[in-house]
Write a protein that binds this DNA or RNA. Structure first.
Lengths: 252, 252
DNA sequence: AGACTTTCTTGATGCGGATCAAGTCATTTT
DNA sequence: AAAATGACTTGATCCGCATCAAGAAAGTCT
């Protein structure tokens, strides 16, 4: 009859081939055999709690990490005590790519809530990618994608108004939650207003005011960390800067 | 006697092993044999003139490019007609990394002056890096470095004042010219004030005023595109935001 | 539960840098 | 050489967002 092997919950979860995130993650596009081989080098540790560091700037780099549940903030401490928030990362996202450069982490990563990660020892990943061209290709694509995403942030910070920035931010989460099978219009943000502001190059107060304003304009409903997007198309209009949305408001 | 083979100027120039940029470029850290193999896939075309596009956003991606002389601006056209300048690239710098992602260029690259480049067909580079671990490693490092540099720009655009931005910009060129064997304190900028402003998230007028102010404060001498840095340490102070420089000015 | 702390919101004010408007200088055209 | 064009500078004004200040709400500690 069926195999005697006991398949515990852990056994199921702890393998790329059974992971619901596989289509977003490193194994994306690999053959089952290749996924198996990749799986062989991945380490899964105990979860982190809110406020725990996954790594800090200056730490020796040995592993890339993929978030499997929870969320993570990456930031780079700058000379004068402050910090620049570099990103908020959701399950399936790979972090630590900036550290390959010189074998040291240049920024820090901290759990925003209870968070589980897969660790991928980089030297092993590198060896593996030498004998698995599809993995190598995937790595190049992921690194390139990271560059493309940062490029978009450059435009955001260089050219967009506060309103456009927050709308972009919200829609980014909307899209990413949707990709992961969650609601695109109803979600919880795990970071503080302060962290949102820091990330977007805005003061906390501005972020708070914008949430209020967006709510007044029936673009969304917000209560602390709980956000419900009520008019996603108009949020996209705002992102574009083509403020037809605004005029339709003000012509009351 | 010496070989009968005639070594023309072109023959000398057109090979990584004879290229003075090799230590800044892809071959960095490779063995002579490996450099030779890499050299085998590199294509060198006729130079571009000021205003020529190396590629445009949307173009099919096939090659990475290294500037060998001259300079290049990369930018991403944004929806509403404007553009975001993403970078200015000097000899030895590799561009096009953002296009690996989905085989299409997401941004455009245009020559700021007469410019020569090496083209590296990416599919060949990929194959080669499968059999040359050191090349693969180098590629990972370069991609990671690109991410790190964009990260720094995020901090610049998110947190720094106009003054800090321009000082950072100038010192970046100073360092890069120095690396390339040119003066760190006396150089020509190949881009317009408008392009500098766009890159730094500032209006042209602000850039112009800052040049004037820096000159008044004896930080530099500027005449159109010709810049002479007169007080590099104080420019570094400005970058830090630790404005001891400023106080020493104002306490006259 | 009550005190304390932190986060968020809201209002008032101020400033840095954008925008608008001319004018100057350099380069190209004819 | 004069005229046209584009790049840069300089001044005046304005506005978006930061900063300052205070209160409200939520979370934490004892």
């Amino acid at each position: 009859m069926t195999s005697r092997k006991v398949v515990t919950f852990e056994n199921i979860k702890v393998a790329c081939k059974n992971c619901s995130l596989a289509t977003l993650c490193l194994p994306m596009g690999l053959t089952p055999d290749d996924v198996e081989r990749l799986d062989g080098i991945i380490k899964r540790g105990r979860p982190y709690h809110r406020g725990d560091h996954l790594y800090r700037g200056g730490d020796k780099f040995h592993s890339l990490r993929v978030i499997t549940s929870g969320s993570v903030k990456t930031y780079s401490p700058n000379e004068d005590g402050g910090e620049q928030v570099l990103g908020f990362h959701l399950p399936g996202e790979l972090i630590g790519l900036d550290a390959i450069q010189d074998d040291n982490h240049t920024c820090s990563a901290i759990a925003l809530e209870t968070t589980a990660v897969c660790e991928i020892p980089f030297s092993q990943l590198e060896s593996l990618s030498c004998i698995m061209p599809s993995l190598q290709h995937q790595m190049y694509r992921l690194l390139s994608r990271e560059i493309g995403q940062e490029t978009e942030m450059l435009t955001l910070l260089g050219k967009k108004s506060a309103e456009e920035r927050l709308a972009t931010f919200l829609l980014s989460f909307s899209e990413r939650f949707k990709q992961r099978g969650f609601s695109a219009s109803d979600f919880f943000l795990s970071m503080s207003r302060h962290e949102i502001g820091n990330y977007l190059g805005l003061a906390v107060e501005t972020v708070s005011r914008l949430f209020t304003r967006f709510q007044d304009e029936n673009l969304l409903h917000v209560e602390r960390k709980h956000v419900q997007l009520l008019d996603i198309p108009r949020l996209y209009d705002i992102v574009q800067g083509t403020d037809s949305a605004k005029s339709s408001q003000s012509r009351i």
